[in-house]
Design a protein around this nucleic acid. Structure first.
Lengths: 213, 213
DNA sequence: ACGATATGAATGAATG
DNA sequence: CATTCATTCATATCGT
């Protein structure tokens, strides 16, 4: 991740109206959330510097709201991010319980068994978001991050692969207040009735979502 | 594509592994693990002749420990190897069935995953462990799975992967000067008050609490 | 030298 | 939480 180049972050504004499927299949639109560098930076900051590991629903809500200003994101993305991050950290440990890990040699280890650390050098008095609910006076900024300059992490950008269908209409309203109803065209008729919602109803659906494990 | 020649590369053997020392350059392995032919042979043997598809963390540890005598390797390498091997095998297969593969080109026998050397001489469900691998002491047998191989996919397939049209998207997006009112908005209803009520309907829960639309 | 392909690595999303 | 799946990125390798 960090140590390497690996730039894949795309702009934060690709609201991508799920693309109208353009001429390709309907699945052309990259369905999955692609975190922007800023979002990742913040998430890691929360994870490492704030010890957030399994945020509650309220926290997730706030975090995603805050991250939203850096790009499209949903609560579940935040949820999964923390889950995965934690799981992978553990798995890493589990897979090589020993392993040489010869000093930071130039093996170019993409961090698997090296100390996960992100530490943003910009230390700032971070408001405790963990408290969650009773944020009462919660500062509007919620987490506030200060320092936005990229300090590393892919920066170069390089245009994502042309895989995505051409945006078709520029339809992203990123930025402008007009949060129009925005209805993705894709399929007029209830696009993912079965793929997604079904899951929700059927399964406990993110039972963990609320930390209700 | 010539699967025929799986002769990866064997130049990476010198990797001392622990000698690391100064941790200076040591740019040898440019980052990526390059399995030696022996390692690949063993991995394939496990995969095809022993039905190992998704080794558990413990198995991975043992496997990697065993393979280490043939070259530098870490647990994650083994993990990824199986992960990828299985995924690609499935991917190929899926591609085949999905797309009728028009064009009667000489493709004839879809030999995608036919392993040149290893191949599946013997079906996997057999107790035979480690075919000729274990050179060193240690090693207990890695195997474990006496059989089980089966594993879903194979026959039925059916996939439930219709992840098309993402839609997703949330009501608000892109920053917007309007700011996001969320929390402390004192929204009369306070959507995600969580508490107990939420537990009832997971779906609702997800939507309300995680912002999934 | 490129372009295509094979494959290691990473990670979002799910499932159990 | 542990595991698994699907996709995608990155890069080594080979063919022309």
């Amino acid at each position: 991740m960090e140590p390497q180049n690996q730039q894949q972050q795309q702009q934060a504004l690709n609201e991508d109206g799920s693309s109208g499927k353009g001429g390709y299949l309907c699945r052309t639109s990259s369905t999955r959330w692609t975190p922007t560098t800023d979002q990742i930076r913040i998430l890691k900051d929360l994870y490492y510097n704030n010890g957030v590991r399994s945020p509650s629903a309220e926290q997730i809500q706030r975090i995603s709201a805050r991250l939203r200003q850096y790009g499209k994101i949903e609560g579940k993305n935040v949820f999964y991010w923390f889950q995965n991050h934690k799981a992978r950290e553990r798995q890493k440990k589990r897979l090589n319980s020993d392993v040489p890990m010869q000093r930071g040699v130039g093996v170019g280890n993409t961090n698997w068994n090296n100390t996960p650390e992100e530490s943003i050098h910009t230390k700032y008095p971070l408001p405790n978001i963990t408290s969650g609910v009773s944020a009462s006076s919660s500062s509007s900024g919620v987490i506030s991050v200060g320092h936005m300059g990229n300090y590393g992490y892919g920066s170069v950008i390089m245009e994502k692969s042309f895989r995505d269908c051409s945006i078709s209409n520029g339809g992203n309203n990123g930025g402008v207040g007009g949060s129009i109803g925005h209805n993705f065209g894709c399929v007029g008729a209830d696009p993912y009735s079965s793929s997604y919602s079904t899951l929700f109803d059927k399964r406990r659906l993110m039972e963990e979502n609320l930390g209700v494990q």
